[in-house]
């Protein structure tokens, strides 16, 4: 564990909490992509199946359980409790176009051709693009509430911090995992455009609004 990894995990946790609290407090999930939330649930489920057969540390186990629970909790709030507020007409990204290529790639490029390993690889590939439906929703409506922007910023920061974590681990522990690194860089790049808008607009108190 190093400071980048810890801060990355905390940003991730904070992003998830921001989203849950936003939906709960406003009694609305307007502006949030249910498709992205489904993809994240698929990501965590396929990755954290190793809860059954691998123990890393209490920290690791607790975080995995929290991510899984929060992810399914978000889906419950969006698709059941506050379904009436869900922006279904704008959330039109076809997630099969992300799931199918991630599955095929996981079968071809992996560390070992074993069921759990392939599921882990699939989760890494899918996570790298899971935010696309959310970014697509923001681009379709042309704006995002500040709180949604904060959520996206924390989620992007988590990925950027993980890159620093991998650089650190490469030098300090001689540890690296090319699959995670390449997918993580792809994922971080997807946030770059958003980071720019966040820093130039949201932090100056303006709403995140795309040019018409």
């Amino acid at each position: 564990m190093n400071i980048f990894r810890l801060l990355g995990d905390l940003s991730h946790l904070l992003a998830i909490i921001i989203l849950l609290v936003k939906i709960w407090k406003t009694r609305s999930c307007a502006g949030i992509s249910g498709k992205s939330q489904i993809l994240f649930a698929v990501v965590y489920t396929s990755r954290y199946l190793d809860l059954i057969n691998a123990f890393i540390s209490p920290y690791n186990t607790i975080m995995k359980i929290v991510f899984l629970a929060a992810s399914y909790g978000t889906i419950y709030l969006m698709y059941m409790k506050f379904k009436a507020t869900y922006d279904v007409n704008h959330d039109t990204f076809r997630i099969e176009f992300l799931i199918a290529p991630a599955a095929v790639l996981a079968l071809i490029v992996n560390h070992a051709f074993e069921p759990l390993e392939i599921l882990w690889t699939f989760s890494i590939y899918l996570e790298s693009v899971a935010i696309l439906p959310q970014l697509f929703l923001v681009s379709k409506t042309g704006e995002a509430e500040s709180i949604t922007s904060h959520y996206l910023f924390m989620l992007g920061s988590y990925r950027a911090l993980y890159i620093f974590n991998w650089i650190y681990r490469y030098y300090a522990e001689n540890h690296y995992d090319l699959i995670a690194i390449v997918a993580g860089i792809v994922q971080t790049v997807l946030y770059c455009d958003f980071f720019y808008l966040y820093i130039t607009k949201v932090l100056k108190g303006k709403k995140l609004q795309l040019p018409a």
């Binding site: 990755r47 691998a54 995995k64 560390h111 070992a112 759990l116 390993e117 882990w120 974590n165 995992d177």
Partner: peptide, 10 residues
């Protein structure tokens, strides 16, 4: 080859 138990990140 890395085994699944080596995936120590979240």
């Amino acid at each position: 080859m890395k085994k699944n138990s080596n995936h120590d990140e979240l």
